[in-house]
Every structure is written in C-alpha cells, then in structure tokens.
Design a protein around this nucleic acid. Structure first.
Lengths: 184, 184
DNA sequence: TTCGTAACCGAACAGGTTGTTCGGAATCGG
DNA sequence: CCGATTCCGAACAACCTGTTCGGTTACGAA
C-alpha cells in the first residue's frame, strides 16, 4: 500500500461518507459539512485531501474501473462489453446507484458516457465500419440507449436482470448497427 | 393576457435573465443574486414569484411545449415527432441550449425524457406492439438514443442538420423496433 | 523503543448565498 | 382619479464555504 495509513483511512472515510449521503439525500443536497460530520474528520483535514465535493465524487471513479475496455475478444459478438458491465454494475449496486443515478449529479454520468462512446466506436471500426460523421451519430445513439438502460435500472424504473437488459440493448440497436457493417 | 402588466414584466425579466446567465456560466453557477441583478428586480420581488432557481427553470418548460405529442398522424411513419421536434429545437437554439444541455442542470432534461418516453410508447402501442416489460426497455433505448442526439447537438458535439439527425436516429433504432411490430 | 515528522484536530474567521420581513414608493386597472 | 396591488431595497438570521494556525496525535523508520 502506498503512503500513510492515516491518509488512506481518512480518504476512505470521506469517500464512503459521500456514497452514503448521496443515497440518503442526493448529491446536490450533500454539503461538505455533512461529509466531515459523517466521516468524522476535521474540516481542515478534508480540504487537505480534496478541493471539493465534486473532487470526492470523481475520486470514486477509479472504483468504477469496470467502465474500462475489456481487451476486444473475438470479433464474433458485437458490444462484448455490455453483459459483463451490467453484471458488474449489479454487484456494485450501492456505489453505482449513488454515483450514476439521477441523484448522483451529472459529472460521473458524463464521464461514463465518454468512456463507453470510445469503446463502441473502436468496436465498430474494428468490425469494419467506415469512420464518418454518420458513424459518430450512430455511436451517440448506441451509447444513449445503453446509458438509458443503465439509468433506468439505477433509478429503480426496472427490475430486469443484467441478461434481460443486455438482451433489450442488443434487440434495440444491433439491427441498425449491422446495416452499416460489411458482410462478415 | 392574464393579470397585471407588472407581473408579466417581472416574470419575463427573470426568465430571460436565467437563460442568459445559464448560457454564460452554466446553471449551477447562477445564483439568485445574479438573477435579480441581471433582471433588475428587487430581491423580495423575486421570492414573491418563484421559490427557487429551479422554479424559474421549470417555468420555462411551457416554452418547450414542442415536446408535446403531435396528434398521431397516419400510422405510416414511425417516430413522427422526431424531425419536427429537431427543427423546432434549431429555431429555439438559445433557449434549448440553455435548458437542455449539460450546462443546463438535469431536471429539464429528465422532464423531456419522460415526455418523449410517453410519446414513443403510445406510438409503438398504436403500431401494434404488445405492452410488456421488454417493450418498456425498448422505449428506454429509443428515448436514450434520441436524447443522446439532442444532447450532442446542444453541446456542440455535432453540426449536423435536423434532417441528418433525424436520419441517424431512424437508422439506429428503426430496424430494431420494426422487429417487435406485426407485419403491416 | 525512541524520535522526528507528517497528519490530524478544531475553533475561529471572512466572504458569500439564501430566504424572509417590513415600511414606503410606484404602478396598475377600473 | 383612487384604491389595490405590486415593487423596492435595506436589513436580517441562518447557513455553507474555504482558509488559517497553534496544539495534539499517530505513524514508521532507525
């Protein structure tokens, strides 16, 4: 482990406090004063580690590393990221609900959107699509559909399983995507 | 016109000030003090008309009435709302950019999402789809794709025309949607 | 174990924002 | 023209933020 034990402890306390408080009141309503009270940490200590509420939020992003590209496996199946990601989301339910839902305040959602957009774009290019403005718009649609499902689940609008969500995602966008790919 | 001229004037001033300020600094950064300064309105006056910053934001929603269902025309073409809506968006560029973009702070976006979701769901049911959990997930995907395009345009990520956006939308989701509809 | 150092505490502070109150002035509609 | 409504604006308490600083505590290296 890197650094002082006290540092790790403090940072962990604060990060966990934020997750808990977001789940209770939503990101907007959480104040730094709330945070340090819940984390039981001195005020000056907080500002020694983070600059902001949002800084804490983004520091949690490392824990959402499942948003990272899996080494593109065989070209057999499109959107290989989908199911594993959805399953991982269900495991990390608390964290994801706090950071990615409507109550979790945009920035994390935006970050995830960009990450997945890159993922999808690379995958489509690898599958033989031609880079173009039209392709970028297609990527926007695909990512929008996926993030929509994620948000719906996170916000409790559906109780579908990861497999069902994955199936819905594919059913919605795969036919449209196949049309821009060359025959295999 | 309904009510006192002073009232209309005041409310209009405040609403316009909010739009201007959002375009300058983003929704988050706008304070009530900013608002009343820009609108040139007394502090007590503001709170006599609105409870919140967000209250002003939502009061602008009436101006976004184009998000309302157009009387479903012939069953010929799916997603009849798409192109007219996108065109109307381009006309109201300033307002839409302020309220619907990443800088415009979630609530309006969320509201629009719900509105369009109802629109899409009704249209699919009218076209012969069976109500089911799977259909709801499909609707989520379709709306996600559309809102994604809208957001991309609002945030300046694309310079595509309404017609191009409409085409991209249809290309992405129509094939998947057709699959759940009975033969015409 | 010892010891120097790094981290933490917590109170206090200035600056800013929010939402309310109230008497007096201005403006409206009839 | 006049009564009623609305607006003004200053003042206020309450809250939140981000910083400072002297004193205390916990760490880990030797």
């Amino acid at each position: 482990m890197s650094g002082d034990r006290r540092v790790r402890r403090t940072r962990r306390m604060i990060r966990e406090a934020l997750v808990a408080l977001i789940l209770e009141k939503g990101y907007e309503a959480v104040t730094v004063t709330d945070l340090i009270a819940r984390a039981d940490v001195g005020r000056s200590t907080f500002y020694a580690h983070f600059t902001d509420k949002q800084d804490v939020l983004l520091s949690n992003l490392d824990e959402l590393a499942f948003l990272r590209p899996a080494p593109a496996g065989g070209p057999g199946r499109l959107f290989a990221f989908s199911l594993p990601m959805l399953e991982h989301v269900r495991e990390q339910e608390r964290l994801v609900r706090a950071l990615l839902g409507r109550r979790g305040g945009g920035p994390v959602h935006a970050h995830g959107e960009r990450l997945i957009a890159d993922l999808v774009r690379d995958e489509l290019l690898a599958a033989g699509a031609r880079a173009s403005a039209a392709l970028d718009l297609l990527v926007v649609c695909v990512v929008g559909a996926f993030m929509g499902l994620l948000r719906a689940w996170v916000d409790g609008e559906t109780t579908a399983s990861p497999a069902e969500l994955d199936a819905a995602f594919r059913a919605a966008v795969e036919p449209g995507v196949r049309a821009v790919l060359p025959r295999p």
